[in-house]
Amino acid sequence: MTDKDWRNFGLAVVGLAIAACLPLSGNGYYLTIGVTIAMYVVLATSWALFSGPTHYISLATAAFYGLGTYVVALGIDDVPYIVLLVIALVVGAVSAALVGLATLRLSGVYFVIFTLGLAEMVRQVVTWVQSNWGGHQGNYVLTDITEEIIYWELLALAACVYLAGWLIGRSRLGFALKIIGNDEVVAAHSGINTARSKVLLFMVSGMVASLVGAILAPRWTYIEPSIAFSPMLSFQVVIMALLGGVKRLWGPLVGVIPFTLLWEAVSISFPNQTLLLMGVAFLLIVYTIPHGFVGLLETYSARFRERKG
């Protein structure tokens, strides 16, 4: 590890330690926002791990998240919570692998289309299975897991995601993904198994999303398919990651925090226009800052260096 790595590592530890103190403030409102931010940080960062280097836009976050939530909803009465988290992880990884194997061997468009309706499709199937064999539509999730615990769980997961992202960035897999994102034909002709690399990283992002869903499930007391599989979630994750920028590991973080805070304010002031405003925000980002805050920062620092040099 270089000096710079140690410095970043130190910063990350300090940042996490400070963030971990939030529940001590005793303010429930702050904690709720903290949970939301932590959730989106994990989701957007893990989304960017895959979609950043490959430019394959995944809209499947809500599907994996919903699966994780449902694992907990179905098993909470019979299985220890910690085991459910592991199951959610596996379910997320396996379903991401299946989606990846079906679509990632082909052009990127097929992948986007497939993920676009995935959450809705899974919702239909879950609803159908439940109403035919489950006998009821939803499930009660009654646990003694508090908001604080959820928050700390998410922070721990965030730490894991950053660590994983850093390791992948230095690994052959990360390098392979970068080459694939540049030119898939060259990648294949350089000996890279392109489909395998893409599927592996998509699995990472899918299992994290599923785990987040499982961690957040106790927040609801009653879970039904339309709550678990909300397509809005995929959209919000994409928008926040893009706002921050996907070229750096910390990019999504700087997108999530301002956006979540802004969104809190917006959805309180204009509760009926959230969809419209979300669309406007999305277009603003795509048209004005296509590379996010990270891109802006890099442009400015390049200009600054030019002026100095």
């Binding site: 052959r172 390098f175 392979a176 970068k178 080459i179 994102g181 540049n182 030119d183 034909v185 060259v186 002709h189 350089s190 000996g191 890279i192």
Partner: peptide, 26 residues
């Protein structure tokens, strides 16, 4: 290993990374 009729480089990687790309997986 091959080159392409219309030269294909990896634009977001720098010069040395472009060469390393050939060395790692082949």
């Amino acid at each position: 290993a091959r080159t392409f009729q219309l030269v294909r480089l990896l634009p977001s990687l720098n010069v040395i990374e472009n060469v390393i790309a050939g060395a790692v997986f082949g």
